[in-house]
Write a protein that binds this DNA or RNA. Structure first.
Lengths: 110, 110
DNA sequence: TTTGTTTATTGCAATATTACGATTAATATT
DNA sequence: AATATTAATCGTAATATTGCAATAAACAAA
């Protein structure tokens, strides 16, 4: 196997896990933090910033883009990547709904 | 490979990705939602609730426990699992710090 | 047009994850 | 004690992920 049985779960559960999965690698966390920090579009410094090889960074960018969390335009020889703010907010809504489940209850037998 | 180069990243980045990774599977999302919903300790219904085999659920529970998000006590022949509220809040702080990065800026060339 | 610069893609090796059957461990029940 | 019940562990097959060297693609500059 090694194969997630998505059909057992709700769309919401699958969506949450897909978002979470993309954050489940420190390189992607780091890329996103960098895009927020420089707060403009990145044109290639990511490979120097993070210590991974160029194809590896490219692959991580692809996954982030595929999920819609970043936008990217190739501009001549360099590329312009930045956070897709609209989708970032959408993602936050989904994740927060999951994180903010009600904790104010008893039932603590453990 | 198939091996994350954690040493390239900060402790914070690694911590975020470890939390996210555990949410990166719908079965674990589902387990956590169920624990919140029934709001008491679970004693075995998870296998029926979710459609995965008992060893598989047990393995997912182990990961959740290992990260501290749930607590579990064996009680005779059944087991009592519930959310570790203290650690859940800690986790939320870490993740929210990452999700709530400042979006109110221009620099949108894409 | 040739040469550099930058990013994407391909192909592959190493490792990790998912899932489950079979079994074990631990305790209840009879 | 023998039997049932429940959850953990072991072993293993299938698949996914990570990382990078090599290469390709796309364009800029000379």
């Amino acid at each position: 196997m090694g194969l997630v049985k998505s059909e057992l779960f709700t769309d919401q559960q699958n969506k949450i896990s897909l978002y979470a999965k993309v954050f489940g690698h420190p390189a992607r966390v780091s890329i996103l933090q960098y895009l927020f920090k420089i707060n403009s579009c990145v044109c290639g410094d990511l490979v120097n910033e993070i210590g991974l090889a160029q194809p590896t960074i490219s692959q991580h960018l692809k996954e982030l883009k595929h999920l819609g969390l970043i936008k990217g335009n190739v501009e001549g020889t360099s590329v312009c990547y930045c956070i897709d703010k609209k989708n970032w907010i959408k993602m936050k809504t989904v994740i927060n709904q999951f994180l903010n489940q009600d904790l104010t209850q008893k039932g603590d037998c453990c």
